[in-house]
Simulated assay, not measured.
Amino acid sequence: MKNLLSEIKKCTICVPHLDLGANPVVSGHKNSKIAIIGQAPGTKVHKSGIPWDDASGKQLRKWLNVSYEDFYDVKKFAIVPMGFCYPGKGKSGDKPPRKECAPEWHQQLFDKMPNLEMIILIGIYAQNYYLKDKVKRTLTETVDNYPEYLPKYFVTPHPSPRNRFWLTKNPWFEKNVIPELQKKVALVLK
C-alpha cells in the first residue's frame, strides 16, 4: 500500500489540465474500514495536502459524528477522491474532478484494502461513477433512496457550505439520513 500511495503522489497524468499543478491528495491503509469518495480537493486542501481540511470537511465529520482524530486515522478511513488534484476554477465554483484518476488508481487502491466495509459516495461524480445505471434521475432522488445501495455504498450530497440551499430545501436528509449514516459508521468502527 505504501508503494502505491507513493506512486500516486508522483502522478502527473493530468498536469496539462491543472491550474495549480499536481498535488495528489489521497490516503488509505490496508486496514481501512470506510472509504470516502468525494469530488476533488479545493484550493485550501491543495495547499495543505490534508484531505477535507476545510469547511466541507468540518461538516462531513459532523455528519459522520466522528472526531478529527478518528477521521484522519487511516486504519478507519481511506480518503479516495474522484480526482486527486485541484481541478481548477470553473464558471461557478471549481471545475469537475479530472476523469483520469478513478480509472487509473481506484481499483488498485481498493484491491489493497480488503477490510473495507463501507464506501461513502459524496456527490454526483462519485455516485455516477460507482452506481452507474442504478443512479436516479437527480442527486436528491439518489440520496432519498440511499437504502437501495446499502450495505456497500452510502450516498450523500456534498457537505460544502454552497449546498446550504439544498439542505434547507431537503430537511429530511439531516432528519432521517444523517442518523442512519452515523449509526452505520459507528457500527463499522466498533
Score class of each variant (00 low, 15 high):
L4R: 11
L4Y: 00
L4S: 01
I8M: 05
K9F: 06
K9Y: 06
K10Y: 07
T12N: 12
C14T: 07
V15T: 13
H17T: 14
L18V: 09
D19P: 11
L20I: 09
L20S: 10
L20K: 13
L20P: 04
N23I: 09
N23Q: 10
P24K: 07
V26E: 05
H29D: 04
A35K: 06
I36R: 01
Q39A: 13
A40E: 13
A40M: 08
P41W: 02
K44Q: 14
V45F: 01
I50M: 03
P51M: 08
W52M: 12
W52L: 14
D53I: 13
S56K: 10
G57T: 14
L60W: 02
W63R: 04
W63E: 07
L64M: 08
L64I: 07
Y68K: 14
E69S: 15
F71L: 05
D73K: 07
K76F: 06
K76P: 03
F77G: 00
I79E: 01
G83P: 10
F84G: 05
F84A: 09
F84R: 11
G88I: 04
P96W: 14
P96L: 13
E100Q: 13
C101L: 08
C101M: 00
P103T: 08
Q107Y: 10
Q108K: 13
Q108G: 07
L109A: 08
F110R: 10
P114Y: 02
E117K: 10
M118N: 06
I119K: 05
I120T: 03
Y125C: 12
Y125E: 13
Y125H: 15
Y125K: 15
Q127T: 00
N128V: 09
Y130L: 10
L131K: 03
K132G: 00
K134D: 04
V135S: 08
K136G: 02
K136L: 03
L139Y: 02
T140L: 10
T142L: 00
N145I: 09
N145M: 08
P147T: 05
Y149F: 07
L150V: 06
P151W: 01
V155Y: 00
V155G: 02
T156P: 02
P157N: 12
H158T: 11
P161D: 01
R162I: 14
F165Y: 15
W166C: 11
K169A: 12
W172G: 08
W172M: 03
W172Y: 08
F173R: 07
F173S: 12
F173E: 07
F173A: 05
K175D: 09
K175C: 11
N176T: 15
N176H: 15
V177I: 11
I178P: 03
E180A: 12
Q182S: 09
Q182E: 05
Q182G: 08
Q182D: 06
K183V: 05
V185W: 06
A186Y: 06
A186R: 11
L189P: 04
L189A: 02
